[in-house]
């Protein structure tokens, strides 16, 4: 299945793009998605730092199963205020 991913702030700059389209097997989870993102963009985040993902505008756990029409965004540490 195809998953569209959006990048914000630091991740957008490091990835050099604000969106990417990933091919993942059916039943893939958030953890599978971040692994694929790291393969494509090794400099996105250090290995010891987990990449936070939002699915359909809520924070998602690594074992969350993705669906093709999900809105998926990578969320670097927030710094509003």
């Amino acid at each position: 299945m195809k998953i569209e991913v959006r990048f914000f702030a630091l991740y957008r700059e490091r990835a050099g793009c604000s969106r990417a389209s990933l091919d993942l097997p059916a039943g893939a989870t958030v953890a599978d998605l971040t692994a694929e993102v790291r393969r494509r963009h090794p400099g996105l985040a250090p290995p010891e730092v987990s990449i936070v993902v939002a699915v359909n505008t809520d924070y998602a756990e690594p074992d969350t199963v993705l669906n093709e029409r999900d809105e998926v965004c990578l969320i670097p540490p927030v710094s509003g205020g």
Binding site: A54, P77, V78, S79, G80, G81
Partner: peptide
């Protein structure tokens, strides 16, 4: 400051930095 996905970047005379984004663990 903990959970809202908003980011700020400080712009200096000689560069810039995404605040709080310096690769720390983030568990919203």
């Amino acid at each position: 400051k903990e959970i809202v996905p908003i980011w700020k970047k400080e712009v200096y005379e000689d560069g810039s930095r995404w605040v709080a984004c310096e690769d720390h663990e983030f568990s919203p």
